[in-house]
């Protein structure tokens, strides 16, 4: 058999890996989105904690954002993979099931990305909250809005608007971090490329194809966030 060429690899022919790679890119996107959403929940909680007047909550928030931004993502992934499976196995043992129970890699990956991403999102949300104008919050109070109503009508819409550029960056981090999930065996884009490289012995072509697909994902994301930013700012008069 003749060695397979680059265009045959990315093609959809009999020996082509195009469909497999596209599907894997879908998995990459899915795990990154799930991680980003987990990160949004954790990030907004951490931002609220850091902004609260409760000292203990603020300290916990600080600890979370400092630690998770200071250690390698790979280490967090290992912790979740091995630690999660270990915890599950122990729970299983208590329920009378002897044997190793592995945490599903997709869930592990999404959680690991989410925990790291949340630390970055917390800083984005905190910055956005701090740029709210005080007068608007006072106005909301003076018309008698309850805290919940004020949060829903005044705080959230504006924080989201200010946070869009920062969230765009953090989303890119999630997308790129998802490649690390390949080390625990989730068949996302990079892992699929490794599989292809192993079976055809053309590693360069496969990793190149993967790189191009990642580039496509990050480029589309950049454009999407730009559009979102423009749209969110459509009611704001710019200086100058």
């Amino acid at each position: 058999m003749t060695p397979i060429g680059f265009f045959e690899i990315i093609g959809f022919g009999e020996r082509g890996w195009g469909a497999a790679l596209l599907l894997a890119a879908g998995v990459t996107l899915a795990v990154a989105i799930c991680g980003f959403l987990v990160g949004s929940v954790l990030g907004s909680l951490a931002a609220a904690a850091k902004l609260s007047r409760n000292r203990i909550a603020a300290a916990i928030g600080d600890f979370y954002t400092t630690v998770l931004r200071g250690i390698p993502d790979l280490l967090v992934i290992y912790l979740f993979y091995f630690g999660g499976s270990l915890a599950l196995t122990n729970v299983g043992r208590m329920l009378g099931y002897d044997g190793f129970i592995g945490l599903p890699v997709f869930v592990t990956g999404a959680l690991a990305i989410g925990v790291v991403n949340g630390a970055y999102q917390a800083e984005v949300f905190r910055g956005a909250y701090l740029s709210l104008s005080k007068g608007e919050l006072e106005a909301a109070k003076s018309v008698g809005m309850s805290r919940a109503l004020m949060f829903r009508r005044i705080v959230v819409p504006q924080v989201l608007r200010y946070a869009i550029p920062g969230l765009g960056n953090v989303w890119q981090l999630a997308l790129k971090e998802s490649a690390l999930i390949s080390v625990i065996g989730l068949v996302e884009l990079l892992r699929q490329a490794q599989i292809g490289a192993g079976s055809t012995r053309q590693p360069f072509y496969f990793f190149l194809a993967a790189a191009i697909l990642y580039l496509a994902l990050t480029t589309i994301s950049t454009i999407a966030f730009q559009k979102a930013e423009e749209r969110s700012m459509r009611g704001v008069r710019r200086a100058g």
Partner: peptide, 11 residues
Amino acid sequence: RGTPLLVQIFL
């Protein structure tokens, strides 16, 4: 900047 570092290392 648009591709993951791990992909660059593998490449």
